[in-house]
Computed example of a mutant assay.
Amino acid sequence: MNEPFSYDVESAIFIRFAMVGPPVLNGLAAKGQRRRRDPYSATLFARDIVQSLRRQIGFRRQGEPVGDAVVEELLATVIWDIPVEDFVVLVGIDATRRDAVKRDISKRLAERLTAEYEIFPAPAFYHGHTGTGPLGPKK
């Protein structure tokens, strides 16, 4: 019997917080060089999340696959709508508060993705530069 597909989108997004560079979070917290929020930081973070998720899953709406750019645009909008105060906590010193905010933001982003799209298994195999999977070989 087939098991229903389940993938922990929230945890996958939470992990991306550890990988995203400080300049991106600083841009969202208005703590970067320009001292104001940088909308491109939301785009970069959304792109990073989608690229990471797409290694294991795909997105569909009404049975039709949805392109990465569409998902990135939705996520960038959702990220941008998160209050600047939450991102200030993310670049702050207090690790307990940082983790709580990361968990909260991850949950919000995952809920929005799963509300908008059907998640389905679509693993992208990478076999190095000489591989035969969809991510290789490089030209």
Rank of each mutant, 00 (worst) to 15 (best):
M1I: 02
E3Y: 07
V9R: 05
A12F: 08
I13L: 04
I13V: 13
I15K: 14
G21H: 12
L25I: 09
K31Y: 12
K31Q: 14
K31N: 14
Q33A: 12
R37E: 09
D38W: 12
P39C: 12
F45Q: 11
L53V: 11
R54V: 10
R55Q: 15
R55K: 15
I57H: 02
G58H: 05
F59N: 02
R60I: 07
R61P: 00
Q62S: 03
E64A: 11
G67L: 14
A69Q: 06
E72M: 14
L74W: 09
A76T: 10
A76G: 04
I79M: 08
D81N: 11
I82G: 00
P83T: 14
E85D: 10
D86Y: 14
V91H: 07
V91D: 11
G92T: 06
A95M: 12
A95G: 02
R97D: 08
R98P: 00
R98A: 05
D99F: 15
V101S: 01
K102P: 00
D104V: 06
I105Y: 11
S106T: 04
R108I: 11
L109R: 06
L113H: 01
L113K: 03
E118K: 02
I119S: 06
P121W: 04
A122S: 11
F125A: 09
T130K: 06
G131A: 07
G131Q: 07
T132Q: 06
L135I: 14
L135A: 15
G136E: 08
K138G: 01
K139Q: 07
